[in-house]
């Protein structure tokens, strides 16, 4: 298997601008329509916490497992779990099964993130919170950021 890229999320860098929702919905629904975006920024104003929620493209994906018609399958090119519309019967079992609420449903079909075939539109417009990187580097930015903080603490302690 070739090296796969995945969508990475760093909530610390999110500014809650929701540009990802707009770009995603424009690409997939033809409209600027957050209610139909495959990415959703959960904004907790009082806590100053903003978390972009995306499809995790689970290795053992509950949506694939519950699908009775085999409409959800992994794309070998991108590793994304994608909806094959011609097989989807619109039963919404996948919507129920997804622990992250990442599957949407409209006009009789299940809809979900397909990583835009390997060039995610959300990443293109994001300020840095969303990335598209090789799986083995997932978390690298967060590790580095935490290590930086630790470095400063250690410096203070040993100074």
């Amino acid at each position: 298997m070739s090296r796969m890229k995945t969508l990475t999320v760093n909530p610390d860098l999110c500014t809650s601008c929701r540009m990802c929702e707009l770009a995603c919905s424009a690409k997939h629904s033809g409209e600027f329509r957050p209610s139909r975006a495959h990415v959703h920024v959960a904004v907790f104003v009082d806590d100053a916490v903003y978390i972009p929620m995306v499809c995790m493209q689970c290795a053992d994906a509950p949506c694939m497992r519950v699908c009775p018609s085999g409409a959800l399958a992994r794309d070998p090119e991108t590793n994304a779990v994608v909806v094959h519309e011609e097989r989807c019967i619109g039963c919404r079992l996948c919507v129920m099964a997804c622990p992250f609420g990442a599957i949407r449903y409209w006009n009789g079909l299940a809809r979900k993130c397909d990583l835009c075939g390997g060039d995610p539109e959300c990443v293109r417009v994001c300020n840095g919170a969303l990335g598209f990187d090789f799986e083995e580097r997932d978390g690298a930015a967060a590790r580095r950021a935490y290590a930086q903080r630790l470095r400063h603490t250690l410096k203070e302690v040993t100074a």
Partner: peptide, 17 residues
């Protein structure tokens, strides 16, 4: 400053939390 915050669709995020 805790973090910066944007209005809808803004890359500037001048808001100060």
């Amino acid at each position: 400053l805790i973090r910066r915050r944007a209005c809808m669709a803004c890359p500037i995020a001048c808001g100060r939390v």
